[in-house]
Design a protein around this nucleic acid. Sequence first.
RNA 1: GUCCCCGUAGCUCAGCUGGAUAGAGCAUCGGAUUCCUAAUCCGAAGGUCGCAGGUUCGAAUCCUGCCGGGGACGCCA
Length: 577
Amino acid sequence: MRQFSHQLVQRISHFLDMDVSDLGMEVVDPPNPKLGDLSLGCFPIAKAMKSSPVEISQKLAQQDWQLEWIEKVVATGPYLNFTVKRELFSQYAIQEIKDQGTSWGDTQTGHGKRVIVEYSSPNIAKHLAVHHLRSTMLGQAMANLFRSAGYEVVSWNHLGDWGTGFGKLLAAWDKFSDIDNFDSPKLADREDPVSDLNALYVRYSNEAKDNPELDDSARDWFKKLEDGDSLARERWETIRSVSMELFEKVYSRLGVRFDKVIGESHYEDGMKDVIDLLVSNHLLEESEGAEVVSVAEDIPPMLIRKKDGATLYGTRDLASAIARHEMVEFDRCLYVVDAGQSLHFRQVFGVLKKLGFEWADHLEHAEFGVMRLNVDGHWKKGKTRGGQVVLLHEVLDGAVELAANIVLSKNPDIPEEDLKEISEAVGMGAVIFSDMKAARRKDVNFDLDKILSFDGETGPYLQYTHVRFASILRKAADQGLSENDGKGLVEDEELQLIKRLLRYPGIIDKAAKQAEPSQLSQYLLDLASEFNTYYSKHRVISDNAELSGHRLALIQALKTTLGSGLSKLCIKPLDRM
RNA sequence: GUCCCCGUAGCUCAGCUGGAUAGAGCAUCGGAUUCCUAAUCCGAAGGUCGCAGGUUCGAAUCCUGCCGGGGACGCCA
């Protein structure tokens, strides 16, 4: 749409003898197709010229526009409504999309800019659970969107791999070797090492209630770890690597990957420097035995050091932000973390600003709403009735199993291998899309029944629509039909689709700018829905080979666009299902 | 109590950097399949855009207050 809109703005600049290209004029659809095909409100110009938008639109409508793809220009109140010559408009649009090829949708908006997206960030020695899904998928989609918008992206997994909890785990490993010895069979060789670790941890915590000595032992082990004791270190590394191996299994199913995986432990050395810096800037204050930094009047001070002198995760976040900026000089750095931590991030960003780091303004908390689970008919945060977390891979397996049933029922003759691949993709598609459909700030109720309904505004709906494209193209190829230049796309629904297609790059830009994947989700739903309407009214493949060719070009453009959009959302576009 | 987020159809949401008659999906009811996959499509019904002020030529959209829901608020991460 940019090319067309650019031409219109250029003509207006010429007519009015003033540059209107920076006024933020936006080409939109008129509310009623009878008014025209494209519309431009003259309000921004009116403001700039201190004149009436109605007068301006009337004046402009009378000009000789001299654009070959414009049929007529009419002023309706303050709006300038354009009717396009469909043959040329369609032809240009199809050509544009075809020329761009696989990079269709990409823009240069972020050219020369670098952005870090931190997401997922699970704790090691634990499983990925459903509540990790939001950060993981939103973050990956954002990373994809930024890349598409021309940014250099560093996707970042900030592992929780440090803290006194690991002291307990190491102490448990040591103390309970008679019950479960992690050296035999070796942790790394086990089926589910993380569950074994959890079991031991729970046992240790329970016994520690009656036996305070265990707490001392945990402290000792954490001290050993901090001091670099070789045994502690080796075991901790093992825990880390078995955890990562498990994470990777889930990540690869979801299409998630990171440029950097760096644990909190990495920033330990920087902690002392941060505190020194706070001291030398006279920011650190004593309060109730602890040490704090006041940030702003309307938010409580940030706690830096506990009574006993130990630091907290906030301090670690200060250190990691500083270290991160030294590693990668970013223009934006997003933390894809739930909204419950918004105060924490305001404090972290505020303290960094107080320390004089100008780049603190480039830090953003890309917050998202909580995920609730259904517990006995009530929506609750985090855990199920038994206090258990719901494991992510179990949810994914459940989704895939259900998808397999449905695929099989719709398509009983499907080969075994295809069934496996397709149900995996459809199951993932359903789960992922349900998480990415609404604006990220909204809380979501994780309702597996709804996610797996596959009707209406769902991932499988989009995948099914893509299958229709593939199916049409397949059939056309069988009949030896070839694509045409799109000149014959003159139906109302075709124009509608062409206009929708042209908005794709702008949507990518907007989604990246706002760090809002749902912008893309909503766009794809519109696109698919408009196509399905078209599909029910018009036949692509017909006796008219020329017209079929034009329509095939449209189908190809639709397939390119929907496929591209789905991929950015980590949903697999399918050719069959 | 203070701060943050949210409040649009029965439910889930879009529209929110102000602009033409507020749109989808689900659920309900009715309809469409000799034809490219009906996981689809068409129609009906469903709205004090939480409430009250304000700004504006114009407010679902911006501002203030209130109400309702969620979250956070110092020694966990």
